[in-house]
């Protein structure tokens, strides 16, 4: 088991335990069990060759669990941590898959170090933004919020279209 795989497994375990405890404390122990089992399945899939799709399903399940947790009244900061941990695990799984295309050597260690540093920066930035957004309170009526959402969706859509054209 490489360092990256160990790190990925640790992050996943942390995310699974947080979900289990949070849902159990709120009395939704059945859902806690379901999410914990999903985490176990993800953990198992990480060790299987060709099961990389499971990682994406894991991210969907954990993000949905975090959203559900927040909706059910659990602490937002805890659910945010769950999303960050799941996203990091998903990223590291994909990175492991890419690294498996070639044999590891000295340059791979440098690449791994750089990748983990970049991931930590991304996670830290996300947390900082979240903290900032929680301290600043802006009130919009529904129409403005809807319009803002629409603009965001359209903007993101255009951006993705352009990027996919570039990729082709």
């Amino acid at each position: 088991m490489t360092r990256i795989e160990k790190l990925s497994a640790s992050l996943l375990t942390a995310a699974g335990i947080i979900l289990l405890i949070s849902f159990s404390l709120e009395g939704f122990w059945q859902w806690a069990l379901v999410f914990f089992l999903a985490g176990l399945l993800w953990w198992y899939a990480e060790r299987q060759r060709g099961w990389h799709w499971a990682s994406s399903i894991g991210l969907i399940v954990f993000s949905a669990a975090a959203a559900a947790g927040y909706w059910l009244g659990m602490q937002l900061s805890v659910m945010l941590v769950v999303v960050i941990l799941a996203l990091s695990t998903w990223d590291l799984d994909a990175f492991t898959e890419r690294l498996a295309q070639s044999d590891p050597d000295e340059s791979t260690q440098v690449l791994v170090r750089g990748h983990v540093q970049r991931l930590i920066i991304v996670d830290a930035t996300a947390i900082a933004l979240a903290v900032f957004s929680l301290t600043v309170e802006l009130r919009f009526n529904f129409v403005i919020a809807f319009l803002l959402g629409l603009v965001m969706a359209l903007g993101l859509n255009r951006l993705l279209l352009r990027l996919s054209q570039n990729n082709q």
């Binding site: 975090a66 945010l80 996300a126 933004l129």
Partner: peptide, 9 residues
């Protein structure tokens, strides 16, 4: 807020 990590990523 939950979407922030994904957006930043």
């Amino acid at each position: 807020v939950l979407a922030f990590p994904l957006v930043v990523y």
